[in-house]
Nucleic acid binder design. Sequence first.
RNA 1: GUGGAUGUAGCUCAAUUGGUUAGAGUCCCAGAUUGUGAUUCUGGAUGUUGCCGGUUCGAGUCCGGUCAUCCACC
Length: 398
Amino acid sequence: MNQNPFELVKTSDRSKARRGRLHTAHGTIETPIFMPVGTLASVKGLSSRDLREMQAQIILANTYHLYLRPGTELVAKMGGVQKFMGWDGPMLTDSGGFQVWSLKDLRHITEEGVEFHSHLDGSRHMFTPESVMKAQREIGADIIMAFDECTPYPSTVEEASQSLDYTLKWTRRAVDWLRENPPVHDYPQYFFGIVQGGMHKELRQKSIDALKEIAPDGYAMGGLSVGEPVETMYEIADFCTNSLPADRARYVMGVGTPWNLLELIKRGVDMFDCILPAKNAQDGLVYTSRGVLRYKNAKFADDNCPLDPECDCHCCKNYTRAYVRHLFKTKEPLGWTLSTLHNLHFYLHLMQQARDHIEAGDFEEYCGTYPATSAGSGIDSRYMSLKIAIISFFSFKK
RNA sequence: GUGGAUGUAGCUCAAUUGGUUAGAGUCCCAGAUUGUGAUUCUGGAUGUUGCCGGUUCGAGUCCGGUCAUCCACC
């Protein structure tokens, strides 16, 4: 569609880990990269200055949410999402396929598109591949996503196949619409297709083959981390990257824990987004160089250490666990801001480490020595859970 | 000093004409969270019902006394 924005810099000899660059009108993104989620044109609790200071390279906004409020036409009128939110770096918009999927009782899916009721006021709306492309053009992100149907887990081959059928038809219609209609903004907006197919490899293969013919500017893998065992997620992602074109960017949507990210980078993934670091920070849990830390726990009430003694983020350099816990307990907005600041810094720093080690040629060793990090979810392997338990026990016992 | 009112979880309050193991919110404690419908959700702990006695098969509830607090009047 457009000129390929992705530049493959290096691939590891001993895994599929890749070092690359994604060139956009608002800047170059060094990959592998994690994209902080800013659903409503805001990474909750943070200003664009915070994002710049933590060296965020690209952030993600959401078409469904911006469509409902303040409206994509208004965003266009304000000069696009970057100008609207005071962030001049690269942006990506998710199409809203996932949101519509999560609306469950409020939606009706047909081949034409998705009819749904706003979760805000119940008003009726229709999303079609065409209308969603129009909305994303108006929002003006550097990367826009196909309108897909996120296949639930578990799903039978028949269900996943039917779902994939819609996603592929919608993707073709989206591309046609983009070709036939003029851009809203005067810079390129790259279009990423989304691989679906549930946990069925033959469907994932079919999805990839069809997408290759459509030739989007990049490839995302959707429908992962929707309840399947983590090993299955790795296996499917691994299967996909075997077939995806090596010269295009690969993006696993909605994943995941720090450990998930390293495992998927090893399997050839370049881009990630996830609400987990932001959501967990907000709920009293942060990631540290020594594992997960539930800073809201009573044992940290008089802990004078930073959240992570080895972290050099603004929060860790200036504030203590006792203080951040106090802010959480008293529901002070600053607590949300500081803990989110830390968690996102942690993720971005992790990606920096990954890039450095891929370049140095020792990424696989780095993964082997990396401290176990649970998301606080039970889907990691038993081995990991044990390791986490041991590390947590010795690290945070007081 | 006299009269009246009120005493139930750390806090704010429920509990039918006396009827199972005295509940709820909040607070506290722990857990969950994977393209944000999320300042969210799930679970747990906490009581000599001010105290002493009486009536009753059975009292947070009725009676007597007592203590505390508040109000009004001397």
